[in-house]
């Protein structure tokens, strides 16, 4: 039987791994703020799923979250097609859906199970208590089971279509001309983002999941130009910052999810300053300040 701390560290590492993989593609597809949007709107999906079924079990939450995530992606795209700027349409959609979610929770007051703060901040300390019994394995926390399942799904989808993901991320026009269904893959990817978000909910909450998604991947982006290396580094950074975050939280006796988000920031800061390829210090030392081609000021 694993100890309490071990379960927490395992949960946090699984979050780091799932988010690391998804985050890499988010950054390459320039959809970082879309992740922010989906992590907010997933709240609405969970609330509606709860109000309909009166249950807070894994599968209902997952389905609600996928629907909410896809709805967000579709609405953003639709408004954009109707002439709203891309980032303005993200802003309109996610704030509206999130506000509806919060209103639903507030109006259905006195609900011990559904707590906005819990959904936003996560409460990893409760994870080891909420267990399910599996044959052969014994008692394992529900969140760990869900995260493992999600990790398997993500790995399967990414590895099975690795070439397609690579192509659609780096050169969507070429991918489309080769007959790869770019739009369908976009929505599959959005579903993966929603699933990851909801699985990480218990552990780090809706907003901190953005930190786990974007920051380790951005740090990895500064170290390498190869997609496979970037994926590995991103997962590694995610796991490391989850564990560092946990110990910072223990040391200061504060919010674990907040500390994890903060730890991803530290990892990024180190990469930003000292990465040999793109770090600030290195560029200063060797006077190759800014490559001309990458200077895409608008």
């Amino acid at each position: 039987m694993m100890s309490y701390t071990a379960w927490i560290l395992l949960t946090a590492s699984l979050v780091g791994a799932c988010c690391g993989i998804i985050g890499t593609f988010l950054i390459l597809r320039r959809m970082a703020m879309m992740a922010d949007a989906i992590s907010h709107t997933v709240l609405l999906g969970i609330v509606v799923a709860y109000l309909l079924t009166r249950e807070l079990s894994g599968i209902h939450m997952l389905i609600g979250a996928i629907i909410a995530g896809l709805l967000t992606a579709m609405l953003v795209q639709w408004f954009h097609n109707k002439g709203v700027q891309q980032d303005a349409s993200i802003g309109v959609v996610f704030t509206t859906l999130f506000a509806i979610g919060v209103i639903l929770i507030a109006v259905q007051a006195g609900n011990a199970h559904l707590d906005v703060k819990h959904a936003l901040m996560g409460e990893i300390t409760f994870v080891p208590w909420n267990t399910v019994t599996l044959p052969l394995v014994g008692d394992i926390p529900q969140a760990v089971l869900m995260l493992c399942a999600v990790l398997v799904i993500i790995l399967f989808v990414i590895i099975a279509f690795y070439k397609e993901w690579k192509l659609t991320s780096f050169d969507p026009a070429l991918a489309a001309s080769l007959g790869i269904p770019v739009a369908a893959m976009h929505y599959v990817f959005m579903s993966l983002v929603s699933v990851t978000t909801v699985a990480s909910f218990d552990a780090v909450g809706a907003i901190m999941v953005v930190a786990m998604l974007i920051t380790p991947a951005a740090a990895a982006y500064l170290w390498t130009d190869r997609l496979s290396v970037m994926l590995g580094l991103s997962v590694g950074f995610g796991v490391v910052s989850a564990i560092i975050g946990y110990y910072i939280a223990l040391w200061l006796d504060t919010s674990i999810s907040g500390s994890m988000a903060f730890a991803t920031g530290l990892v990024f800061l180190i990469s930003f300053l000292f990465s040999p390829k793109h770090g600030v210090v290195y560029s200063r030392l060797f006077h190759n300040r800014k490559p001309l081609l990458e200077n895409n000021e608008t």
Partner: peptide
Amino acid sequence: IKEDTAMGMILSVFFGLGIM
């Protein structure tokens, strides 16, 4: 790193620090 990624990072890391 592109602007939207930078915004996402600052948003979530600062918010995490705030919650801490």
